[in-house]
Design a protein around this nucleic acid. Structure first.
Lengths: 345, 345
DNA sequence: TCAACTTACTTAAACGTTAAACCTAATAAG
DNA sequence: CTTATTAGGTTTAACGTTTAAGTAAGTTGA
């Protein structure tokens, strides 16, 4: 019932506690025979080190924090995107012997709950992942001054302990728009996410630069903004398409919004892809199952998580990873995009 | 830079470390004036207790573990279901001052990674949530003998430290089948999940008992089994409907599978709900956005998480929560169910 | 052959906290 | 006026590790 400690092993082996500690840690100054005896007894008693004690003396907890932000339902953990990223974190952290603690931070910081950093200090968290951070996050200034390494997903931050990973939205969107233009579309709308997400800015950037590169005019009237959700995407699309019925293609900044666009198109009697082509972003599981299946930009979610974890452990061990890493999002052409049927003026 | 400790405060306040500890913990044997001074200094130095040290002496870590099992992609964290449940865990745990550590356990136990319990013992985890457990899980026997309280989601376990929460599948499915029968359906198929999930057994039970209560015949030929995914649900549905084209309604054990059924129906030229009614289970976000929107059984995911957390903290504090709690899943009628058009023999 | 190493350990201290036991002066009880 | 009691602390020990600083015996080098 009671946990076995180094002391228990030491007594049984007839050596000092230190000898046991060093034997188990693989130091060379313990004799072969003694070490063998110690290891055997440790195994026999199913010894597990008490990490709290170790943490106290080494000042390293072996814990990384995951902060999942997001004020609204459907954000944060609930996002279909998060799962594989977290799997990437966990697998890669396990390689380096780290565990992960999850913190939810959806309450405004004025409430009496502790700030990020306070939480980290209590638990001696060595580094942290941040998901769902927004440009208007009130904690932002705390973060850039962070004493521990932080890796943000999809949102670069100034500060020499902060790093970020994400996909190269600009070039990804570029590829999507080019794909649509290659098919013959001239009037391509964007249903973007809210501006407080920095990916929204980047994707808008990619959209504009692609249009300009391709010699297509930029029309603010066919730029819509939603909240990354399906319902929001549908609404934004509907009011846009009613304003500009000559749009033949829509790029949506997330698959959820793209699925909303699909739904909206159905409601307006527009056939996809015959009357309207739709491209999403993320390649969530549902994207392949919609009707028609969604052309989208695949984000390597698991690899994003792995990469983030590698950067974080590196930073925690005194190395200096690049402050920003961008992976490539690949275009996956499915049934929701095709040549436009009707040629409009 | 260096963390402030009780000692720092004690020196500055001119009292002993114990006095500071007791003042901050709210013990009554510290004078009002002294306490005020201590609190002010603690605030001033932004004191945060070192939880590792506290853990060491109190033998309580204040950490609950979350084990997310699942061997396949799309299970575990990636499941659209998990997010809100986890939010429920976290919010409720925060009420009681607990934090949560996440462990991923998708590797077979024969690999050299530690067992659940070893992980818990190292970190002095006080209790654990288990999601995604299957009846053929090789760890099952360890779990029932667990020394710490465990709450499983959707899978009751024998053992006096194990508890479970879930929805009352039997009565929920009963309601779904009754809904279909009330509409006039006589030939109702089930697309169930794999048998290793105990909810699959319960849902099958509900299906059979509902049929019998409603005086409908049970036909093994229209029972299909899939893996809870959309793609799997579609396949299972297709081979079932090809065998039994006179089926007019399908109950699927998860929304993802139901969405797969919708897709399969589209592929076979069956109109939903005119030619085929479909009911899902879960009420995931996408269910309301499909075409047509899915009639489904709403699982109160956040409340499931909250309830689980309440049970776990109770059990950790020596109380004895009921060994199994079932919440109600409510039928949400949407566009995917209607009266059958054609009357078949 | 004696000092200098090396090997294989042991002792002691420290990490930051809590908890039990003890102390002292002032107050209350009889 | 003596004895308990209380208020407001202090001292000491303990939790289970790691690490720095010994130490005693055996081995080597010149």
């Amino acid at each position: 019932m009671s946990r076995t400690t180094l002391k228990d092993i030491a007594e049984k082996a007839g050596v000092s506690v230190t000898a046991v500690s060093r034997a188990l840690s693989g130091y060379p100054d313990i004799g072969e025979e003694t070490r063998g005896r110690i290891l055997r007894i440790a195994e026999e008693l199913n010894y597990q080190p008490n990490i709290a004690a170790r943490t106290l003396v080494t000042q390293k907890s072996g814990v990384m924090g995951l902060f999942v932000l997001g004020r609204a339902k459907g954000e944060g953990f609930s996002h279909p995107f998060s799962g594989q990223v977290i799997n990437g974190f966990l697998d890669e952290l396990a390689e380096d012997g780290y565990d992960m603690m999850v913190f939810k931070a959806n309450r405004p910081p004025d409430s009496d709950n502790s700030s990020y950093m306070d939480l980290c200090r209590r638990r001696m968290v060595e580094g942290a992942f941040l998901m769902g951070l927004r440009t208007d996050d009130p904690w932002l200034s705390d973060l850039t001054a962070s004493a521990i390494p932080i890796v943000t997903m999809d949102m670069p931050l100034a500060g020499d302990m902060t790093f970020s990973v994400g996909c190269d939205s600009v070039s990804a969107v570029h590829a999507a728009i080019r794909h649509l233009a290659d098919l013959g579309h001239r009037k391509i709308s964007i249903v973007n996410g809210y501006k407080e997400a920095s990916v929204s800015l980047e994707r808008f950037e990619g959209y504009k630069s692609a249009l300009s590169d391709l010699g297509l005019p930029f029309d603010p009237a066919i730029v819509a903004e939603a909240d990354f959700t399906a319902a929001g995407g549908k609404q934004a699309f509907l009011s846009m398409i009613d304003r500009a019925p000559d749009v033949t293609a829509v790029f949506a900044s997330s698959d959820l919004m793209a699925l909303g666009v699909l739904e909206g198109a159905r409601e307006r009697g527009l056939r996809v892809p015959e009357d309207l082509s739709v491209v999403g972003f993320d390649n969530i599981e549902m994207a392949a199952m919609s009707s028609p299946p969604l052309t989208t930009l695949d984000q390597p979610r698991y690899e994003l998580g792995q990469t983030a974890a590698r950067m974080l452990t590196a930073a925690c061990n005194g190395e200096t990873p690049p402050s920003r890493v961008l992976l490539k999002a690949n275009l996956i052409a499915r049934g929701s995009t095709a040549e436009p049927r009707k040629s409009k003026t």
